[in-house]
Design a protein around this nucleic acid. Structure first.
Lengths: 146, 146
DNA sequence: TTACCTGCAAACAGTTTGCAGGCCG
DNA sequence: CGGCCTGCAAACTGTTTGCAGGTAA
């Protein structure tokens, strides 16, 4: 099921309404597999729809999260980004503290271990946040040169 | 080396100064192994020192982080807490989304796997954030009753 | 005595909310 | 047509900063 379909579903089931702005914002978040901040989304939407207010972006992003279509990620310690969740794959992140470059990572071993830990402590696992911070190869080279 | 000693060291080496407020705040953060928010620390300090301003707490907490004595944790998606780091043990967290209860967890398997992933992507690992969110046994029981 | 430190209040950034009008269904 | 949605601006929250006076070294 595509994200737009999911949105339509959710909107119907909740007695909400579809709007061009909502579709528009979702489309932007889907295009390119990039994690954006609200500010960034706002800037892009504004290009084709200068009327839009940032409040609408905030409201829509939150709605998408409620609908399970998007997800919040705290990339660095004070930047909130959003990504569209795909049905089949879960991933975590490895981020360069210097240049912000990031890699999406997956690890069955870690996922399994997480489940074990949750079970051992009698927790029903709902979600997790796993971000590795480091310095990428490029940045290490650049810093040496200086 | 105790946290207070570490603070003294750091302060001397950086040309800073010790103050009763700084010691006071550190003492509170050390007492009980709890992760507190700035607001909570502020409330506690105020009891014995009503004069103190919250800005001082923010400044001190930041200083302690710079000194490597404390560490920021983003417990839930918009609450920042701080914990005193102990020299010997690293741990991550498992948090109940319902009641806020948390368990500190350690896993060699995950730590090793993280290093591997970082190495594979040519990152020099500096830090990581690993938090599991779930519902604890008590809360699951309570919810059933309702 | 010289920085540094503190409390206060003002400034800020990110996010939320109330309102009056617009639009979907 | 009713209720949700939007843009705008004002409100709010968590955090930072500038300033004038206080204090450690």
């Amino acid at each position: 099921m595509s994200a737009i379909e999911k949105l339509n579903d959710y909107v119907k089931n909740s007695g909400l309404k579809i709007s061009s702005q909502r579709n528009h914002i979702l489309k932007i978040m889907e295009s390119e597999h990039i994690h954006r901040t609200v500010e960034e989304i706002y800037d892009i939407v504004k290009k084709s729809n200068p009327e839009i207010g940032i409040a609408t972006v905030y409201r829509t992003v939150k709605l998408l999260c409620d609908a399970g279509i998007a997800k919040e990620i705290h990339m660095s310690h004070d930047v909130t980004r959003y990504e569209i969740v795909s049905d089949n794959s879960h991933h975590d992140h490895l981020i360069c503290q210097n240049c912000g470059k990031f890699v999406e990572i997956e690890s069955d071993i870690i996922e399994k271990e997480q489940s074990k830990i949750a079970a051992k402590n009698d927790f029903e696992l709902k979600d997790h946040c796993h971000i590795l911070y480091g310095i990428c190869g490029d940045c290490r080279k650049k810093n040496k040169k200086k």
